[in-house]
Simulated assay, not measured.
Amino acid sequence: MSRNGQRRPPEQAGPTVPIFPIAPTVTALFIGDFPMPRGHALPTHRHTSHQLAWPARGLLRIRTDLGSWLLPPSLALWIPAGVAHAPESEGDAVLGSLYLRPERCPASTSWQAPTVLTADPLLRALLDHLIRDDLAPEARARAEDVLFDVLSPVPVTDVSAPEPKDVRARGVARALAANPADGRALSAWGSGVGASARTLARLFATETGLSFGQWRRRLRMRAAMPLLAEGLPLEAVARRVGYASASSFAAAFHEVVGLTPRQYFPLGGEG
């Protein structure tokens, strides 16, 4: 059961999640919290409704065919109706979800692709308000109007680092995933995997859509995010993922992700 007493959508969702009957004036179909223990993942599924998903606690990764996002409690992801997605936990987390009828959403929220939004205290307060099951329909409709007004996109870039299919490039990718701080150039990797630097560069470009340098920066940022979420000092995170100083790491993080580390993981935030 959700906190507002409605039946929760099944985890083993099929092509769609049922839409629960509600009053015609109500936009929010369902609000609920779903515990996500460490390492737990939901199967890939889609909804007939738009979904606003956020970590009520902890750190969540949401994968789609259009990208992958690692979300702290300060951020939420708008998932348009029909987009297949798979949430998974990074540590113990709670997935918060709000489902909305596409026909009831204003044009200002007509995002056609997954969109990262800020989950500031005002949005969280509105969500807590909408969870109540004693709201009059008029009061609920007013709150939902305000909800749409405060949905605010943030310039966050997908940091997925696809694994190459070729066994030689894949060997390099997996070694770097195990040790993101390894700074060897492709020429140094070549002898170990049986391919020239030029061949490896071509394989990364054609099989991941990224140059090797771009791919490695994404991998490092992805590896850094759980460490930042744990509250490790920037200097320590920088060393673990291959940067000589906190300032060089912070600059690279901003360039790749679109926010600074402290904007992405605010100090004193929830979770």
Rank of each mutant, 00 (worst) to 15 (best):
L100N: 02
S89H: 09
I79M: 14
V83W: 07
V83C: 10
A81E: 11
L123Q: 12
G67N: 10
R124N: 11
A76W: 09
D120W: 04
D128G: 13
G82F: 10
S97Q: 10
W69E: 02
L95V: 12
W111I: 03
L75M: 13
P80G: 06
A93M: 08
E88R: 13
W111H: 06
R104V: 00
P72G: 13
W69R: 07
R104P: 01
A93Q: 09
G96M: 10
P114Y: 00
S68W: 02
L66Y: 15
P121T: 01
V83R: 11
G96F: 09
G67D: 02
L117R: 07
Y99I: 00
H85K: 06
L71S: 03
E90M: 15
A113E: 13
A86Q: 15
W111K: 03
A81C: 06
A81L: 06
S89V: 11
V116P: 01
L126M: 04
S74N: 09
P87Y: 05
V116E: 01
L123Y: 11
L100K: 00
A76Q: 09
T118K: 07
W78F: 11
L77W: 05
G91A: 05
A93G: 05
L70K: 03
V116L: 10
L122A: 15
P102F: 07
G82M: 07
L100C: 07
D120Y: 01
L95F: 12
P73G: 04
A86C: 13
H129Q: 14
P72Q: 04
P80C: 06
P121W: 08
P80M: 11
S68L: 11
Y99W: 14
G91V: 04
S97A: 14
L100E: 01
H129Y: 14
L123M: 14
R104M: 14
A84R: 14
C105V: 14
H85I: 04
L98Q: 03
H129R: 15
S110D: 15
A125C: 10
